[in-house]
């Protein structure tokens, strides 16, 4: 019996039954946030973990998605779940426009530009750009989502909605990892010059990866808007980008289970530390340092790719 398949089935079964076993809406609410950040983490993982693009402004695309969904649903009464693809597309287009000129920047220079884009987006939202975003008050009264005439409002209902979307996300990125596209990105990450030399159009691939990550963040934004029913620029600040980034690196860049575990720890730990009251973020910071020291490639780093017939080379996962 395949050990991994077994573990995955057990985990799936456990989390599918979680709201039934533990009816505490608070812990279900915490899990909802964890799922949401896992989705965001997976979308950023595609950019940072697989392609090696240093993006510290992911909250910008998350914000564009959330605001697109919020504006369209409050102004035109479009059911918010229908807006998932629209919000994703808006975030993707925005990423395409922004990333096209900057995608060639290296490492830390790309980081500062993405930070800049994130801050510009937040400030634009705060200043009520085009009279659409409601300024620092944000947008309120976002209608609750509905599925087959069932109104989603309780935490356990969101649990299955967001959890379901997380499963789709995992499936999508897993398939993408296995694809020719995914392999090309890994090649770029490991050695861009060699990839270019082998006929990979690195600029195009990098841009495509960036846009895919942004589209997914935009869709996560829609779920966030639907869950909160009110959004404001404060929810999309630099710290949010940093948190998503830390989820990816701490969990293990490039590894789907790693990113999900990262979301569990970085979103869940502050909740566990609630009993420390004022000191809870102190413990959180210390835990981040310790986890990095003891698992310095991330908690669950990706395994080296296996190819039929080729024996695995030891230490091949650089």
């Amino acid at each position: 019996m395949n050990k991994n398949a077994f573990i995955i089935s057990v985990l799936l079964a456990f989390f599918a039954c979680f709201p039934v076993l533990f009816s505490n809406p608070y812990w279900i609410g915490v899990l909802n946030d964890i799922w949401l950040y896992a989705i965001l983490g997976l979308s950023l993982n595609w950019i940072v973990g697989h392609t090696g693009l240093f993006n510290l402004g992911h909250a910008a695309y998350y914000a564009v998605g959330a605001y697109t969904a919020a504006i369209l649903s409050t102004r035109y009464n479009i059911p918010i779940l229908w807006l998932l693809p629209v919000a994703g597309a808006a975030a993707g287009l925005f990423a395409l426009a922004v990333a096209r000129p900057i995608i060639h920047l290296r490492g830390d220079y790309l980081a500062i530009v993405t930070i800049g884009v994130g801050e510009i987006v937040r400030i634009a939202l705060e200043n009520d750009i085009f009279g659409l975003t409601g300024g620092s008050n944000g947008i309120f009264g976002i209608p609750r989502p509905e599925i087959f005439d069932m109104r989603i409002r309780r935490p356990w209902q969101f649990y299955y909605l967001i959890g379901g979307f997380l499963l789709i996300t995992i499936w999508f990125f897993y398939r993408l990892e296995q694809s020719r596209f995914g392999r090309a990105l890994n090649y770029i990450k490991e050695d861009e010059t060699a990839a270019e030399g082998s006929g990979i159009n690195t600029a195009w691939y990098k841009l495509a990866a960036f846009v895919i990550g942004a589209v997914w963040a935009g869709m996560a934004g829609t779920l966030f808007a639907a869950k909160m029913t009110i959004i404001s620029p404060g929810s999309f600040n630099f710290w949010e980008s940093v948190l998503i980034f830390a989820i990816v690196i701490l969990g293990g860049a490039g590894s789907i289970p790693g990113v999900i575990l990262g979301a569990f720890l970085l979103v869940g730990l502050p909740e566990f530390f609630r009993n420390f009251a004022d000191a809870r973020m102190l413990f959180f910071g210390a835990a981040m340092v310790l986890m990095m020291i003891f698992r310095n490639k991330g908690l669950l780093p990706p395994l080296a790719r296996k190819y039929a017939g080729v024996p695995r080379v030891k230490g091949g996962d650089a």
């Binding site: 940072v48 830390a246 973020m281 102190l282 910071g285 835990a287 981040m288 340092v289 310790l290």
Partner: peptide
């Protein structure tokens, strides 16, 4: 990038300290 996350953790720790 791991060291960056450690730096972030240290920053949160010091700020709260």
């Amino acid at each position: 990038l791991s060291a960056i996350v450690s730096a972030l953790g240290a920053s949160i720790f010091l700020q709260n300290a």
